[in-house]
């Protein structure tokens, strides 16, 4: 078997194992909360008999291990259970929400990743000169600003001062693609500002590290232009560290955008999660936790795989 296939298979297997471990943690964590689902449904004033009957009905009297495997078995068949608060299928609810979150994350990534890498290349090209300092200064300023502050500032500027966008980013299925894009413009901008600095700085640092190599000198002595050297000779060797940071930020775009969703009233996973935490809707919280973990692990495995593929020693063994 080609060693790359073996390595990738190993990574995938490890990722699945990790996901299994996370599911145990999530289940155990919610299990440790005081009270149980029956208590949550019936409220503080419920009688002992009512509680016992409901527990019997929901199978809550069975040992935790049995319930864990029932829960896990359901998930493997695509059944995430029903929400306590509104008795709806969690899977269908989450399906729509996850789609929205991925839509927002995708566009934020589509703007921020090329921009961050491009700015990183430029910062290296003009290192320690004013373009480098400007790029670093501005991106560091935007990352230092809390998302909600950046969100409200942009909202003030672009919806109140200059009426370009709508302050509410809620999207519906009935909207056209262009309308949707227009609606999410503001949250995309905020997210870009938040993730830009990290990826840009890492690109800059990784390429600068490579720029010390002897083959960069070879390229200079061939009479190549500085930007050609950086893009053609330095960047391909800096992909592995850059990809890892890019993936971390993509994971953040999916998992960590609660604040932005709330600020712009965007119907994504984050808002859904926060709503149901306040309602103590344990099955929903569990499902969201598991999906976030899967996204996080999945993206990191993807980063690993790209790092492996970017290494010519692994791709083309002797």
């Amino acid at each position: 078997m080609h060693p790359v296939v073996k390595l990738i298979a190993q990574r995938l297997a490890l990722g699945l194992l990790l996901l299994l471990a996370v599911s145990v943690l999530i289940f155990a964590g919610t299990e440790m909360l005081p009270g149980d689902v029956a208590q949550a449904i019936l409220g503080q004033s419920a009688t002992e008999t009512a509680l016992r009957n409901l527990r019997e009905e929901m199978g809550l009297n069975q040992p935790a291990i049995t319930r864990y495997f029932q829960w896990l078995g359901g998930i493997l068949q695509g059944d995430l259970g029903t929400a306590l608060s509104n008795k709806k299928e969690i899977a269908t609810e989450i399906g729509a929400r996850l789609g929205n979150t991925l839509f927002l994350a995708f566009w934020a990534a589509a703007v921020s990743v090329p921009l961050a890498i491009g700015l990183g290349l430029l910062a290296v090209r003009y290192r320690n000169r004013w373009p480098d300092k400007l790029i670093s200064g501005v991106t560091l300023a935007t990352i230092s600003l809390p998302e909600f502050v950046a969100g409200y500032i942009l909202m003030y500027l672009l919806t109140v001062k200059f009426r370009i966008f709508s302050p509410i980013s809620t999207i519906y299925d009935s909207m056209s693609f262009g309308q949707k894009l227009n609606a999410i413009a503001l949250p995309v901008m905020v997210l870009v500002l938040v993730v830009l600095a990290h990826m840009m700085r890492m690109t800059r640092a990784a390429i600068l590290n490579v720029m010390q190599s002897a083959y960069i000198e070879t390229a200079e002595l061939k009479g190549l232009r500085p930007l050609t050297i950086i893009a053609r000779h330095a960047f391909p060797n800096a992909i592995a560290p850059v990809v890892n940071v890019v993936m971390l930020n993509l994971a953040y775009l999916v998992v960590g955008v609660v604040v932005v969703e709330v600020v712009f009233v965007y119907p994504g996973m984050g808002q859904y999660l926060v709503d149901h935490v306040t309602k103590r809707d344990v099955p929903v919280v569990q499902a969201c936790g598991l999906i976030f973990a899967a996204v996080y692990i999945g993206l990191n495995i993807f980063a690993d795989v790209i790092s492996i593929l970017a290494n010519p020693r692994l791709r083309h063994p002797k």
């Binding site: 002897a214 083959y215 070879t218 002595l221 061939k222 009479g223 000779h233 391909p236 060797n237 970017a310």
Partner: peptide
């Protein structure tokens, strides 16, 4: 001038070739 009129062979060719190309 570089790479056209004058070219260079270094001590460590192993380090002077780009490993990714």
């Amino acid at each position: 001038l570089r790479g056209k009129e004058v070219t260079y062979v270094s001590q460590s060719a192993a380090a002077s070739f780009n490993p990714a190309k």
